[in-house]
């Protein structure tokens, strides 16, 4: 336990809510509010998973994710996106940019936890395999 999650979300109240929910579930949570410096923050914190908002000041979540997937160090990072809508164009765009899972705003606390756990479960075998090699 104690896996590290980086949350990139500009809206302070939402960031506070998510931090509270995850912390209560036993995650170690770091928050970052700015889009422009998000890629730097990911490299600096090297989290086990990333929760990424789409609408960010300075830079959109899609662009940030695109850069992360292009860099070898972060190409395999499990990413959960907070999209405006759960279906349609937003979701397809998130998938195309390389998001592993999505949660649409407004979300239930249970949903974000379930998605995060599922994200880690999917990533774990691949991570172990990579570690064994």
């Amino acid at each position: 336990m104690g896996q590290h999650v980086l949350l990139i979300e500009d809206e302070p109240s939402i960031a506070e809510a998510v931090r509270f929910i995850l912390a209560r579930d036993g995650w170690r949570v770091t928050c970052h509010h700015d889009g422009a410096s998000a890629v730097e923050a990911v490299k600096r914190h090297a989290p086990d998973a990333l929760i990424l908002d789409v609408m960010l000041p300075g830079r959109s979540g899609y662009d940030i994710l695109h850069d992360l997937r292009a860099a070898p160090a972060t190409a395999g990072l499990p990413v959960l996106m907070l999209t405006a809508r759960g279906q349609g164009a937003d979701r397809e765009r998130a998938a195309a940019a390389g998001a592993n899972r999505f949660v649409a705003k407004p979300f239930s606390n249970a949903a974000i936890l379930a998605e995060l756990r599922a994200l880690m479960a999917e990533a774990a075998p691949a991570g172990r395999a990579a570690g064994d090699a």
């Binding site: 809510a17 998510v18 705003k105 407004p106 239930s108 606390n109």
Partner: peptide, 24 residues
């Protein structure tokens, strides 16, 4: 519309998250 949608979702997301926390 997309902008309105975003502007409406943001407070609603906070409200929903914190109201669930309070309910818990």
């Amino acid at each position: 519309l997309s902008q309105i949608s975003h502007e409406l979702r943001t407070p609603m997301t906070s409200i929903r998250a914190f109201s669930e926390i309070l309910r818990d």
